[in-house]
Design a binder for these strands. Structure first.
Lengths: 211, 211
DNA sequence: ACTTGTATCAAACAGTTGTATGAATCGTCA
DNA sequence: TGACGATTCATACAACTGTTTGATACAAGT
């Protein structure tokens, strides 16, 4: 009944289900029994396919990163020769797509957020493959938009951008209470409004646009 | 050896130690045995003083909120009649003090961050007592600073402020890797630079200050 | 038909978990 | 002193955890 698709291999079903459950419960509270049950697989299948629980988690994280980045690349698919404001919005929009999820199952961003709060040894991999590229891209853009500031100030500005992108995933539960109207919007709408707002707020914050 | 202070009551030591451990490991992964051991208390003492593990967690959260708010009130102790820029910086600085911790044990903000990602039934209490007041305060200030924007835009700006304040606690582990120099600063210094930066970035972002 | 490698299965294992119990200890006040 | 309530203690228990095992099924190749 809870088997997602008969045609997928046991291994794939385990990855899919495990991702959802790790995201919902956290690593420790997620149990292999529940994962196998929902995947319609035998209890021993996790150990067979992924050695142990840690192996499963690592593989879930790795495949999630891989697929998220190939669908929404760090630069948002915007050309390097486009105006900096467009490139900035590209990075922001792509970031939001990855964290808030659009057509990807929505637990993926949640997995990342959880990993940040509760590092599991897989954190260096995430930093290397996701955080670092985004960080460096933004640093270039900020240098272009606010060349008069010193290095630390520019770095702080980059953090302000990333902070805004992260927040709406991170505090979803609170936002629903404080502003119910927001939860009623479609994901598409939310991402659209957010990337617009964050880009504008940031451009003003950097002092490049008045308005 | 790991007993914090002999003069405190068992109940208080349990609260203190439990806070640290819940923050570090999360609710599920934290064990009563480890808590009692570090508190120099008997295994049964949690059940005696707090009924069960949930009772302990709820009490930890409640007392943490209470003490954090009485030391760092939502308005940062700035007079209601002070200029809005000063009031804004007050809210931001106080927020950072609560999350990044100054003289309070540093796990307290971490507890909150964890609660946001992994609500435990205690979330409504946090919203009611912490998030809501800060949210409303900021909403007033933004309305004052950017009266020309519509209600949703102002709300988004409030979220941008809160996002920046939260982020530096939330992504501590990543920041340490991406910018080791930052980790070398004292807490005092970090909070000082952050509240300055966030206030400036926000004031520009709101379009109230140019340059 | 026989072998081989892959995959699945039910069952059991040892370790850890939160909680309960009843005896022992302490402090306080009559 | 003696009694009583509050607290601490060692110990036990049942439930749940990740992992292992050995049997079994299946497909492909010879």
């Amino acid at each position: 009944m809870s088997v997602s698709s008969e045609s997928e291999s046991t291994r794939d079903r385990l990855l899919e289900v495990a991702g959802r459950i790790f995201a919902r419960r956290g690593f420790k509270a997620a149990t292999i029994r529940e994962i196998c049950e929902q995947a319609g697989a035998n209890l021993a299948s996790v150990n067979y396919h992924f050695r142990d629980k840690d192996g499963l988690y690592a593989e879930v994280l790795a495949s999630t990163i891989r697929r998220a980045l190939e669908r929404y690349p760090a630069d948002g698919g915007v050309s390097r020769r486009a105006p900096v404001t467009e490139r900035l919005e590209g990075v922001i929009r792509s970031f939001l797509q990855r964290t808030l999820g659009l057509d990807e199952p929505e637990w993926k961003g949640c997995l990342m957020a959880r990993e940040l709060a509760e590092p599991s040894g897989a954190l260096p991999k995430i930093i290397q493959e996701v955080a670092r590229p985004v960080h460096d891209l933004l640093l270039e853009m900020v240098a272009e938009l606010a060349p008069e500031r010193n290095e630390e100030e520019r770095w702080l500005c980059v953090q302000s951008i990333i902070a805004q992108c992260h927040f709406f995933r991170h505090a979803e539960a609170v936002l629903e209470v404080l502003r119910p109207q927001w939860a009623e919007l479609s994901k598409q709408d939310r991402i659209e409004r957010l990337s617009g707002h964050i880009t504008q707020f940031t451009l003003r914050g950097l002092g490049g646009v008045h308005g």
